[in-house]
């Protein structure tokens, strides 16, 4: 048993995956070719019974990657050790090959923002993220991948380009990159920049896996909602990414307004086609 568990842990994310959510646990359980899911780490208990759907995936040796959303690694304050300990415990009990979190902050001055907020692309922010990532790495049993977020606002304090900001953080921490293709699309669309130029400047050899999600336009801005279909432009960007360097795995995120199973299967198939991976449906 021990030996088998260790072998499983070596299996990094591969192929097409989907974000496991309780609402679609039945759908996910029936995907015959699925080798990889991600689960929101804060939703998984550190002890006691696991959600039964997750246990069944582990029994099938499906790789489960805990994805933190509340660590606030970009916060100016030191990361909360209890949150790191929870992420470490979840990684351990799921035999995860890695964990992931965001280059973002979610609280400051005693207030919770409720979601991921962007950092200024300043040297001070780079220092803050790197210090927190180092604190987390000291306690985590596995490597961490860092995800750049989609932002609707930019700080007036920006000093670095997006590519320099991200590359410096990855270089200094040794962390892997979780590249969210929909976030690249959203930021480029909302800032009026070229998403391909960013792909050309990122260290794509550091990508552990990629995220893909749906979104929608509201009030002249593209919103990364995770509750709408994946737009064609995002799938095209997946193709452009894979033409440069295909990530080992790409994962579809859906967080609400779940469509009928046939539609979700079609989205997974479209993603597989765009990336040149076998279908998992």
């Amino acid at each position: 048993m021990r030996g088998r568990r260790r072998v499983r842990r070596m299996t990094g994310p591969s192929g097409i995956g989907i974000g496991w959510r309780p609402e679609i646990a039945g759908f996910v359980a029936e995907l015959p070719g699925l080798r990889f899911v991600e689960v929101v780490a804060e939703g998984v208990p550190a002890s006691g019974p696991l959600p039964p759907g997750l246990t069944r995936l582990r029994d099938r040796a499906v790789t489960v990657v805990p994805h933190g959303v509340r660590l606030s690694l970009g916060g100016a304050e030191p990361v909360d050790p209890a949150r790191v300990a929870h992420l470490a415990a979840v990684a351990q009990r799921l035999d995860a090959p890695l964990v992931s979190e965001h280059i973002a902050f979610v609280r400051a001055g005693g207030l919770e923002a409720g979601h991921l907020l962007p950092l200024p692309r300043s040297r001070e922010a780079v220092d803050a993220v790197c210090a927190n990532v180092a604190r987390a790495q000291a306690e985590l049993p596995v490597p961490i991948a860092l995800e750049p977020i989609a932002a609707l606002l930019d700080w007036p304090d920006d000093e670095l380009t997006e590519a320099d900001f991200l590359t410096e953080i990855l270089d200094r921490t040794g962390a892997l990159l979780l590249l969210d293709v929909a976030n690249v699309h959203a930021n480029a669309r909302n800032r009026g920049t070229d998403p391909l130029a960013l792909l050309d400047r990122l260290p794509l050899e550091r990508v552990a896996y990629a995220h893909v999600a749906g979104g929608a336009e509201h009030g002249g801005l593209y919103h990364d909602t995770h509750t709408d279909p994946v737009p064609t432009a995002v799938l095209e960007l997946v193709g452009a990414l894979c033409a440069r360097r295909r990530p080992p795995a790409l994962l579809l995120e859906r967080d609400g307004h779940y469509p009928p199973a046939a539609e979700l299967r079609a989205e997974l198939d479209a993603l597989a086609t765009a990336a040149g991976f076998p279908a998992v449906t």
Binding site: A76, G109, L111, A125, W155, P156
Partner: peptide, 25 residues
């Protein structure tokens, strides 16, 4: 101001009806 203060100003402006932090559109 330091990053901590700037982040606190931004969160307060976003979720607690705080004043808009200087420089943000």
């Amino acid at each position: 101001a330091g990053l901590a203060e700037r982040q606190a100003e931004l969160v307060a402006a976003l979720v607690a009806a705080g004043p808009p932090p200087p420089g943000f559109a």
